[in-house]
Write a protein that binds this DNA or RNA. Structure first.
Lengths: 188, 188
DNA sequence: GTGCTACTTGACTGCATGGTCAAGAAAATA
DNA sequence: TATTTTCTTGACCATGCAGTCAAGTAGCAC
């Protein structure tokens, strides 16, 4: 995209990327493009010229925006041994990420199902979650009637909540996550 | 409202009420008024003339739309003896109501915080819930660290989910409610 | 039936969004 | 510097909603 562009165009592509990173980081991937344009100091039309569409812009920044966060969770969880701890840590960290980073939440909620970079990121997290769930169930630590789809829903649900109930404090949000985690363990 | 109105106006008020009941029942209280107007066979302007505002219309129908449902839950729960059963039945029925009736969900989510009829209905359900929670905690059946605000949130959350994740089947929605309930009981 | 007045209409404003394009501006080239 | 090519602009279209109002319609009293 930055191949044989005119100087001003190259400058703009970079400026728009940077602005999109800032704006999307703060407000998620559904923020109006006018805001990105304003932040970049260009007109909306330029964004469409340089990136083709809203999706094009998102595809160009989503990895830089979210990849690290998702990999960070996987790495942190892989450092743990106990299957239950792994499962709960995966969910907890994912849920907190959804609260802290609207853009990551959009990825985990599949807000833009068309985008492949986004889908790839989603699958990365989701696939790892499946495995962690499977292991915890094999160890008898987590209810057997939870399916991988249930797990995906537990994350989707939390995303919807993080997005809609944005007046709650992080501490309250965090505290309530324990109620949910508790319900997933095997009854003893 | 039906005092000294001209014949056509009286007819229209009734028609609009009936249409609003149908349309709001199906789509919740945030359905565009154009749909109500179309269903009633009048123009949007007439609704505003007869009911003053969107809120006026909602105030005029919300009780008929929701009161019975909420009272039904309270009655059903009061017929039970065991505090835990009462608590779980209250939550379960409320959550299912939120899935089945978008309008009731809007009441329980306080979608229109300005409306007093709506607030009254909300308080009815919420106050009863508090009491049921308190009894269940006094009996040692439900976690002590759950506050009345947490209870309100458990319902608000479910409302957001019912509204946003409308592609899931009722059976799946129902099944997943058990996970949440399980997490609220005291660990044993 | 005639005229008064209550009532209804639908086109209008206003707002927020996504997305497009002709015309003008600026960089590159000669 | 003059010409060509690329790029940017912001006004514009479309959509979907809330809410308003001048002008036309229809019920009602006499």
């Amino acid at each position: 995209m930055t191949g044989r562009l005119r100087a001003d165009a190259r400058r703009n592509v970079e400026g728009i990327r940077r602005a999109a990173l800032d704006v999307f980081r703060a407000g998620g991937l559904t923020t109006p493009l006018d805001e990105v344009a304003r932040a970049a100091g260009v007109s909306k039309g330029t964004i469409y010229h340089r990136f083709g569409s809203r999706r094009g812009l998102i595809d160009a920044v989503v990895e830089e925006l979210v990849l690290e966060r998702i990999e960070g969770i996987i790495t942190a969880v892989e450092a743990l041994d106990d299957p239950l701890e792994r499962f709960e840590e995966y969910l907890l960290r994912t849920w907190l990420l959804q609260f802290d980073e609207p853009a990551a939440n959009d990825v985990l909620m599949r807000t833009l199902p068309e985008s492949e970079p986004l889908t790839t990121l989603f699958d990365r997290s989701c696939g790892f979650g499946r495995q962690v769930l499977h292991d915890a169930q094999a160890a008898g630590a987590v209810r057997d009637d939870i399916t991988p789809e249930d797990l995906a829903y537990l994350i989707l649900e939390r995303g919807v909540i993080a997005r809609a109930c944005d007046q709650q404090t992080r501490d309250d949000y965090r505290r309530r996550l324990d109620f949910v985690l508790r319900g997933l363990r095997t009854a003893r």
